[in-house]
């Protein structure tokens, strides 16, 4: 059984770092109808460079602050965040234009166990916007491909039009270094891929349970179903990591909004081993 006392990633930013640091929007990419990728550059001093799986608190002046995962690791202090417009603060963030200034706190939380996955097969499963926090993992794998065994990426989305990073998915697929599979809930004219839930694509994957590690990010129901499928096939629960999403407000384990039983998603997570968190995710209203 995993324990959270083990070092699992970079630590939380200092508790005193509650002041948003101004960053300027230098690039805006509209990924889908309601999803935008922003590249931010510090106006003066930046924040500590994040690692894959961590998040920052993004502050839109006059609107508020929300936790957003990093969707790529950029150089020179730049930050890349992919944000879905689910109203409120995210609507304001998604409407950002080049030159706008946003506040940034962080980075916070524990990242994906990329080092632990070296020498293993890796199954990456992303649903919807859940591909954003996992994209840096794929980048890291492709940068050091020989360090990993068989690597599979299964991406689920509501429709073809809502698949994130479409061009990049095509590029990864054509490189043949990662087994890329996509599946949508609903087909649309011209869609030649699979239709169904992500586990439909997992069925066809060859999995060696003893040497497989998995990273899963998406809606909680989806993560539960995927983790169940993988453990049914013999993958150890401790070898499966999920990214838990909760209502994070302070991001420094103080306000208690993101508490999941004995854990805080903001500092113990958001990436948590399945054996630690599985029983908690079936507790209603937790």
């Amino acid at each position: 059984m995993s324990t959270l006392a083990e070092p699992r990633g970079p630590g939380v930013a200092a508790r005193g770092s509650m002041t948003p640091i101004p960053h300027r929007v230098v690039d805006v990419v509209h990924e889908t109808r309601e999803t935008v990728t922003l590249t931010l550059e510090p106006v003066s001093d930046g924040i500590v460079a994040p690692v894959a799986g961590q998040f920052t608190m993004l502050w839109a002046w006059g609107a508020g602050e929300v936790p957003i995962s990093v969707s790529a690791l950029a150089a020179d202090g730049r930050l890349v965040h992919t944000i879905r417009d689910v109203a409120g603060v995210t609507k304001t963030l998604c409407a950002s234009r080049q030159g706008d200034v946003l506040g940034v706190r962080g980075p916070y939380g524990c990242g994906w166990g990329i080092d632990a996955a070296r020498g293993h097969d890796l199954v990456i499963v992303a649903g919807g916007i859940g591909l954003a926090p996992l994209r840096p993992v794929v980048h890291a794998v492709l940068a050091e491909r020989s360090e990993f065994g068989r690597v599979s990426l299964v991406v689920g989305a509501r429709t073809e039009q809502e698949l994130l990073f479409r061009a990049e998915l095509d590029e990864w697929w054509h490189r043949h270094e990662v087994d890329v599979r996509t599946i949508v809930d609903r087909s649309s004219p011209g869609w030649s891929g699979s239709v169904g839930v992500v586990t439909g694509e997992l069925v066809g994957l060859e999995i060696d349970p003893a040497s497989t590690r998995a990273m899963v990010c998406g809606p909680e129901v989806m993560m539960r179903v995927v983790a169940q499928h993988l453990t049914d096939r013999g993958v150890a629960a401790s070898a499966i990591e999920v990214s838990v999403e909760r209502n994070m407000q302070c991001a420094v384990k103080t306000c208690g909004h993101c508490q999941v039983g004995p854990f805080f998603a903001c500092t113990d997570g958001p990436v948590l081993p399945w054996d630690v968190v599985a029983s908690l995710l079936t507790v209603r209203e937790l």
């Binding site: 649903g127 926090p133 989305a157 509501r158 809930d185 809606p219």
Partner: peptide
């Protein structure tokens, strides 16, 4: 069960956060 999950529309805007 697969059909139920899709009816749930887990990727829908009301049920997920912004990440």
């Amino acid at each position: 069960q697969s059909t139920r999950l899709r009816l749930l529309d887990v990727y829908g805007r009301d049920r997920v956060h912004a990440r």
